[in-house]
Amino acid sequence: MIKLQVIGNLGRDCVTNTVNGKNVMNFTVAHTEKFKDSTGAQREKTIWVDCAYWSDRTGIAPYLKKGTQVYVEGAPEVRTYQTQDGKSGAALSVRVSSIQLLGSRSSEGNGGGGYQQQGGGYSAPSPSMEPPIGGDVADDLPF
């Protein structure tokens, strides 16, 4: 089994489609690494990863906005294609099994929640807030 893990920022908003009766969320994650080349000059390299998240739980889609930082895990796939001028190209993509929101570039950080695929099912988003220390959680319920 080969697993690919990517931490990066979404390059565009998530698009949700239905294919053969199943929901798929498509988005692109950009990961940028900084390094020094052989002359000592600071350089950057950005790798774009196309992601396909097949799930009936599309509740996370509104949070997958351009600029949001995410952690994505899944099986890598390499697509080859022909460009309009006849050249061959390749693109890295991931069939997502797990995604977690890490934050956003705006001041309204979206963090903490995530979805995971486990044997065909999905777990609910992980809680981003802990219960109050020393208090009874039932006392904080609004009903």
Rank of each mutant, 00 (worst) to 15 (best):
Asp85Cys: 05
Lys36Ala: 15
Lys34Gly: 14
Asn20Gln: 15
Ala75Arg: 11
Gly40Tyr: 00
Ser55Cys: 12
Glu77Tyr: 11
Gln118Ser: 02
Glu33Val: 08
Pro131Gly: 06
Leu10Arg: 07
Gly119Trp: 04
Ser104His: 06
Met25Cys: 09
Asn17Pro: 15
Gly135Tyr: 06
Gln42Pro: 07
Met129Asp: 12
Val19Ala: 05
Gly112Ile: 06
Ser107Gly: 14
Gly11His: 09
Val70Asn: 00
Thr58Ile: 05
Pro62Thr: 05
Val72Gln: 07
Tyr53Glu: 08
Glu73Asp: 03
Pro132Gln: 10
Trp54Asn: 09
Glu130Cys: 10
Lys3Cys: 04
Val19Pro: 04
Val94Thr: 06
Ala52Cys: 03
Met1Phe: 12
Gly121Asp: 14
Glu130His: 03
Ala138Lys: 11
Val6Phe: 10
Thr83Arg: 14
Asp136Ala: 13
Gly134Val: 03
Gly134Glu: 06
Lys22Ile: 04
Tyr63Asn: 09
Trp54Glu: 04
Gly74Gln: 08
Ala75Tyr: 09
Ser38Arg: 14
Cys51Asn: 12
Gly59Pro: 00
Val6Asp: 09
Lys66Leu: 01
Asp139Pro: 02
Asp13Pro: 12
Gly89Arg: 13
Ser98Leu: 02
Gln82Pro: 03
Lys3Arg: 15
Glu44Gly: 08
Met1Gly: 10
Val6Lys: 13
Arg43Pro: 06
Tyr81Glu: 09
Phe143Gln: 04
Thr32Ile: 12
Leu10Asn: 09
Pro132Met: 12
Lys66Gly: 01
Asp56Glu: 13
Gly113Cys: 03
Asn23Arg: 01
Pro76Ala: 08
Lys45Ile: 04
Ala91Met: 10
Ser88Asn: 13
Gly59Asp: 07
Gln42Arg: 14
Ser38Val: 11
Gln118Arg: 07
His31Gln: 11
Gly119Val: 01
Val29His: 07
Gln117Val: 03
Phe143His: 05
Ser88Lys: 13
Ala75Leu: 11
Val94Asp: 03
Gly59Gln: 02
Gly111Phe: 12
Val96Met: 01
Ser38Phe: 08
Gly111Ala: 09
Asp139Cys: 06
Gln5Glu: 15
Ala124His: 02
Gly119Ser: 05
Lys65Val: 02
Gly40Asp: 10
Leu92His: 07
Cys51His: 03
Thr28Lys: 05
Ile99Tyr: 00
Trp54Pro: 07
Asp140Gly: 10
Lys36Gly: 13
Ser88Pro: 13
Thr68Ile: 00
